[in-house]
Amino acid sequence: MTSFLINMIWLCISFVLSITSVISDQYIETSHIKVFPAVNQSIAGVFQVSDLNDLNQPQYGFNASEARRLCSSLGVNIASKAQVQEALTRGLETCRFGWIDEHLAVVPRIKALSNCGKNRTGLVKWRTSVTQKFDVFCFNESDAATQLRDATTDSPLNSSDYSQQTQSPSKAATSTRTTQSTTSSSTPNDTDNEAVPARFVSSVQSFTGAKAILITSIFALLLTAIIILAYIKLSRALGSNIKQQQEYIQTEEWTCETNIKETKQAAQEDETIEVVDDAS
């Protein structure tokens, strides 16, 4: 019974540790990241996430699987090639490679620069090992839907956009790209400086941490309950065994006393018989 209890305890502990490891794998530290463009200013729902080093400077910090999990931790999906391409046509330009859904590292470029995107324009792709570390492009579907709805709504806020849309396609595209180019960087350092801390990440991180703590606490309580129940059953079993042993000992003592009494009576009877024989 004791070995069974020990095995059950180890089984529960292993189960809790496995659950905790799964939660840890799904949880990525998100308190030291930066996003570009600024928070809540994604382009076509796409934004780029960079890791920060100890000096609070962007660095390539995510392999392909970590990049995907990071977007999930932020409550969004990793962007696809088509989604980043759409953001590029709407003015997204960066100077850092980032992972996308197709296990490619890409950098959207509007202007050709020698130190950005291999001096090429368009969606510059880099097919490399999935263990290579880059930034990641995430896609917020709700942001994309909101921007699309706002773009199709005739309101004072969109009057400038509407006036641009009335221009010829080539002029409108040129104007849009010029505007985005002035807000984004022409050099890697300027781009990095424009990336601002992801303030919304703290709430996501708190929610993820609270969820992990809640799940771990539940399994810890279940483990405690199982241990208590097993202890109670073991105590009852031990108590029953002790009681049986006590009854067995009492039975043996009674049997022993009975045998002794019978032996004494037999001895007395033998002495009586000898006395009678002598007297005769």
Rank of each mutant, 00 (worst) to 15 (best):
N63T: 02
A87K: 02
T153H: 14
L123I: 11
V76A: 00
M8W: 07
E102G: 06
A198G: 00
A237Q: 11
T251R: 14
Q48D: 10
L52D: 08
G45F: 09
A198H: 06
A237I: 03
S163L: 15
D101P: 00
S240H: 04
A212C: 07
D54E: 13
P108V: 08
A67G: 14
I100L: 07
Y27D: 06
A198V: 09
E252M: 11
E271L: 14
N259C: 03
L55D: 08
A195T: 02
Q165V: 07
N259R: 08
T131D: 12
L92I: 07
C138G: 01
I19Y: 03
Q26C: 10
I6F: 09
E252I: 12
I273T: 10
S14L: 15
A172C: 04
T174C: 03
K243T: 10
S24P: 00
Q165I: 08
E271V: 10
D270T: 13
Q48R: 10
I6G: 01
S160E: 12
L104Q: 14
A144W: 06
C256L: 13
G98R: 03
F207D: 15
Q244W: 01
S206E: 13
Q48N: 12
V22C: 04
S129C: 00
Q132S: 13
P169E: 06
F97C: 03
S73Y: 00
T131S: 13
F36M: 08
K125D: 04
L223I: 05
D135S: 15
T216D: 02
D150N: 15
I9W: 12
V22I: 14
Q246F: 10
H103Q: 15
L229Y: 07
Q147L: 11
S217L: 11
G61F: 02
A44K: 12
F15M: 10
W10R: 13
E271C: 09
A112D: 05
F4P: 00
A237T: 09
L11T: 14
A172M: 13
T166A: 15
C71P: 14
R177F: 10
T174V: 08
Q85D: 13
K111M: 06
F219Y: 11
G117F: 00
I227A: 13
S206V: 06
C95K: 02
R236L: 08
T146I: 11
S168W: 01
